[in-house]
């Protein structure tokens, strides 16, 4: 095993040599690349990466350019998880046969996917990888919408969000179904490590990613990725939105170890009302009409109940 990279503070972190390059074609202010940089800079080891179809894939590999300074596989919508699992299986086979040219190098296997390719299309593939417990990490860049294809709803889109296939209007307040609890589902696979991260809490994120890299077995990470185009806010406010999402507990930061040991890793000092989080985004604008105001209070109740549930689960160790 190689040594874990020591990152005590941000100054130390800033000496990292980025392996993700600029002049990719992601929107200005996109959180995807912030997350990818924080993940890639958390280790100095070799990387075997794959991306499912989505913003990250199409924007970082526009012919004739690549933005990745590491082995990276461009693969279909559903199977970045299995592509990386296959690479990991091959690595293990070559290692057993003694055919690795540089056996002292220990690559890390990471697959990226958007919420569309993870919550919907690639769900059974990810579930398979987690069940087989490959030594890999799967990271969801969760922007709650199919942003690459024009903002259609995914099963990660929360209630009340106006997406192009669930538009808000006079008879509908937008998306009717609540978001899938992906982390809960993945935790129920009893995998060694599952966690929710946010790019604004870089230290928490790097800690969890390093913990994931040090874990033998499958790791699932759900990363909040505020989308300036589809959430409809100003590009400069990306980190503000990430702050609001963690401080309003819409995206609580926690980890699940071996499916039963739940730890809450961030408790906001001042909990922000959900209303503030919703008001910052154009996709929830219609909820502030009198007709749909009940959705906001229902939302607040749901977030409170979920926070209560997480705390009880943390205490009970189940």
């Amino acid at each position: 095993m190689s040594e874990m990279k020591k990152i005590k503070n941000l100054k130390e972190f800033s000496t990292s040599a980025d392996r993700f390059e600029g002049a990719n074609l992601l929107c200005p202010g996109c959180a995807h690349s912030i997350i990818v940089r924080e993940v890639l800079n958390a280790t100095n080891d070799d990387l075997v990466l794959a991306s499912s179809t989505g913003c990250l894939e199409v924007c970082t590999a526009v012919y004739p350019y690549t933005s990745w300074d590491a082995s990276w596989i461009h693969i279909g919508f559903e199977n970045s998880s299995t592509a990386v699992a296959g690479a990991e299986a091959m690595y293990n086979a070559l290692k057993t046969k003694g055919r690795l040219k540089q056996p002292d190098r220990t690559p890390k296997f990471v697959a990226f996917g958007g919420d569309g390719s993870s919550y919907d299309i690639g769900f059974q593939w990810i579930s398979g990888c987690m069940e087989r417990n490959h030594n890999m990490m799967y990271i969801v860049l969760d922007n709650e919408v199919y942003a690459n294809t024009g903002g259609q709803r995914s099963s990660s889109t929360p209630i009340g969000a106006s997406a192009t296939t669930s538009p808000a209007g006079t008879i509908s307040y937008g998306e009717q179904k609540n978001k899938k609890d992906m982390l809960g589902i993945m935790g129920a696979h009893n995998i060694p490590y599952a966690a929710q991260v946010s790019p604004n809490k870089w230290k928490d994120m790097v800690k969890k990613i390093q913990k994931g890299f040090a874990t033998e077995g499958a790791v699932f990470i759900n990363a909040v990725s505020p989308c300036t185009t589809e959430w409809k806010f100003d590009p400069k406010d990306t980190m503000h939105l990430a702050d609001l999402s963690t401080d309003s507990l819409v995206f609580p930061l926690y980890e699940i170890i071996e499916g039963h040991e739940l730890n809450i890793t961030y408790r906001p000092k001042n909990i922000v009302p959900v209303e503030e989080y919703l008001a910052a985004q154009g996709r929830f604008k219609h909820l502030f009409k009198d007709q749909y105001k009940h959705v906001i209070s229902e939302w607040q109740t749901r977030v409170d109940e979920n926070w209560e549930y997480l705390q009880r689960r943390e205490a009970a160790r189940v």
């Binding site: 941000l10 992601l26 690349s33 790019p199």
Partner: peptide, 9 residues
Amino acid sequence: FCWVYCPDV
């Protein structure tokens, strides 16, 4: 802070 949160390196 600007280094870590810059999306475009």
